[in-house]
């Protein structure tokens, strides 16, 4: 554990809490992509299968349980409790176009051809692109509420901080995982355009509105 890794995990946790607060307080999931949330739930469930096979630390187990349960809770709020507010007309991204290539890539490029390892690799590839339906939704509606912007910023920062963690670990521990680093770099790059808009607009008190 180093400061970048801890900050990354906390940023990830903050993102999830912000999203739940937004949905709960506004009693609405307008502007949130259910497709991205489905993908994130798949990411956590397929990645954390090792919960039952490998014990790493109490912190690790606790965080995994938090990520799985909050992603399921988010889906419940979106698809059951506040279903009427779900913006399904704009949330039209076809997730099979992400799921299938990620799965094929995990079958081809992985570190061990076992069920748990392939699903872990699949989850890493899928996480890299899981935000695309959300970014697609924002681009379709042309705007995002400020709390949704904060959510996206915290969620994007998390993998960017992990990149710093991986650089640190490479030098300090000679530890590196090429699959995670490659996917994490792609994931962070996908947020760059959003980061730019967030810093130039939302932090100056303006609403995130895309140029027409």
């Amino acid at each position: 554990m180093n400061i970048f890794r801890l900050a990354g995990d906390l940023s990830h946790l903050l993102a999830i809490i912000l999203l739940l607060i937004k949905i709960w307080k506004t009693r609405s999931c307008a502007g949130i992509s259910g497709k991205s949330q489905i993908l994130f739930a798949i990411v956590y469930i397929t990645r954390y299968l090792d919960l039952v096979t490998t014990f790493i630390s109490l912190y690790n187990t606790f965080m995994k349980l938090v990520f799985i349960s909050t992603s399921v809770a988010t889906l419940y709020l979106m698809y059951v409790k506040f279903k009427a507010t779900y913006d399904h007309n704009h949330d039209s991204f076809r997730i099979e176009f992400l799921l299938i290539p990620c799965f094929v890539l995990a079958l081809l490029i992985n570190t061990a051809f076992t069920v748990v390892e392939i699903l872990w690799t699949f989850s890493i590839y899928l996480e890299a692109v899981a935000i695309l339906p959300q970014l697609f939704l924002v681009s379709k509606t042309g705007e995002a509420e400020s709390i949704t912007s904060h959510y996206l910023f915290a969620l994007g920062s998390y993998r960017a901080l992990y990149l710093l963690n991986w650089i640190y670990r490479y030098y300090a521990e000679a530890h590196y995982d090429p699959i995670a680093i490659f996917a994490g770099a792609i994931q962070t790059i996908l947020y760059c355009d959003f980061f730019y808009l967030y810093i130039t607009k939302v932090l100056k008190g303006k609403k995130l509105q895309l140029p027409a």
């Binding site: 995990d9 690790n60 995982d177």
Partner: peptide
């Protein structure tokens, strides 16, 4: 603590 088998990151 780091582990050789398994993934210690989230």
């Amino acid at each position: 603590a780091e582990v050789d088998d398994g993934h210690d990151e989230l």
